[in-house]
């Protein structure tokens, strides 16, 4: 097994889930402003997205990386001999691992809910979808090299 081949797909998966999750968080917050009749021009939207990627991104990345560190190798192990299950398995691994990581973070953090998007069902499902995308990217990048990895 060549573990080093997992490294780049793993990083790419964490990066994608983090960027998508951060953008989701930004635009959920901005949607609250719009619901109160406050204008959010495109320039403000882009600027806020950028600030969140820099300010919030590292926190989310740490959470996603921790979740994926457990879930993606586990999914890889479960996949052995079941190639047809690859896409749904990694989508599920990404989503459920982030859900578990959020639950642990909320239990440990002093506040009820660490990440604002996680306060609502829609936001939580959105974050899980972002993590799913990360899991799928991991699988997509890994497929050509799978014979050498596992």
């Amino acid at each position: 097994m060549r573990i080093s081949l997992l490294f780049r797909p793993f990083l790419a998966a964490v990066l994608l889930a983090t960027v998508l999750g951060s953008l989701l968080q930004t635009h959920l917050n901005l949607a609250v402003l719009q619901a109160h009749g406050i204008a959010v021009p495109v320039t403000v939207r882009l600027h806020t997205s950028g600030l969140d990627l820099l300010g919030f991104g590292p926190t989310l990345a740490a959470l996603v990386a921790t979740a994926f560190l457990v879930a993606l190798p586990l999914a890889l192990w479960l996949l052995r001999g079941r190639d047809a299950l690859g896409w749904p398995l990694f989508a599920l691994a990404g989503a459920l691992s982030l859900l578990a990581a959020l639950a642990v973070a909320n239990a440990l953090a002093p506040m009820p809910t660490l990440i604002a998007a996680n306060r609502t069902l829609a936001g939580t499902l959105g974050l899980m979808a972002c993590a799913s995308a990360g899991g799928l990217l991991f699988y997509a990048l890994l497929r050509p090299t799978r014979g050498r990895v596992a």
Partner: peptide, 21 residues
């Protein structure tokens, strides 16, 4: 609050891009 704030969330996320309105 929370439409304007001089602070950010504990995670570093922007709660609002506006400090005053």
């Amino acid at each position: 609050w929370p439409l304007v704030s001089y602070g950010v969330d504990y995670t570093g996320a922007r709660i609002s891009p506006y400090q005053e309105l």
